[in-house]
Design a protein around this nucleic acid. Structure first.
Lengths: 97, 97
DNA sequence: GACAAATATGTTCATGTGTTCATCTAAGGG
DNA sequence: CCCTTAGATGAACACATGAACATATTTGTC
């Protein structure tokens, strides 16, 4: 059990969890687990508007939880690293007890 | 990589992370890591009002992240299980890269 | 029982947050 | 070029959230 982290780390930590603290964003991340997807496909799969998804994707990207690349007209999103799935399944363990 | 969880689990997961998504609550949990503490001591250690801490403790307790017992006039709080520290250090890993 | 100490709770207020709607930008096809 | 398609962005609005303040509750002491 480590010491209490620095104030800066605590703020960062809270901010990180804030990102995970929204069902839409979690759904997006789970949608991206099997593989990359474009915005409209995510929207369709979650039954939400393109705009709503785009807004959330921006938040996820700013926090480096997803990354994107352009392919013609479409922009393809994918999970940024394996940490994301790790954190999610960690939380799921706690929830599903 | 598992299947997408049920809707109910996703909501619960988001709610769980929402709890972790506040610096005050994280500070409280870190304060409780070394061992149990009464409300006023937590408040002093974090330089916050007793009321603010009590409100947050109630949220943490409702989510089963801390537990409490009475000892005379005081109520002593402690972390509910080891999952809490696990989740916190997991997030810290991601943050401190 | 009156009182003090330790917490809990209710209310209020300012601030954040997520979605929608309308609009804007970028890329490809004719 | 003009138009269509795919996303991004900005403003507005409704709703949630955290802290402060005052007050209530519970317990121990005299």
């Amino acid at each position: 059990m480590k010491n209490r982290p620095k104030e800066a780390s605590i703020e960062k930590l809270a901010d990180l969890y804030k990102i995970f603290g929204d069902a839409t964003r979690i759904r997006i991340m789970y949608a991206l687990m099997p593989g990359e997807m474009c915005v409209q496909d995510i929207a369709d799969s979650l039954n939400m508007t393109q705009s709503a998804i785009s807004h959330q994707l921006r938040i996820l990207k700013t926090s480096c939880l997803v990354k994107s690349r352009r392919e013609g007209k479409a922009i393809i999103y994918s999970l940024a690293d394996t940490h994301v799935s790790t954190i999610l399944s960690q939380g799921l363990d706690h929830v599903e007890e």
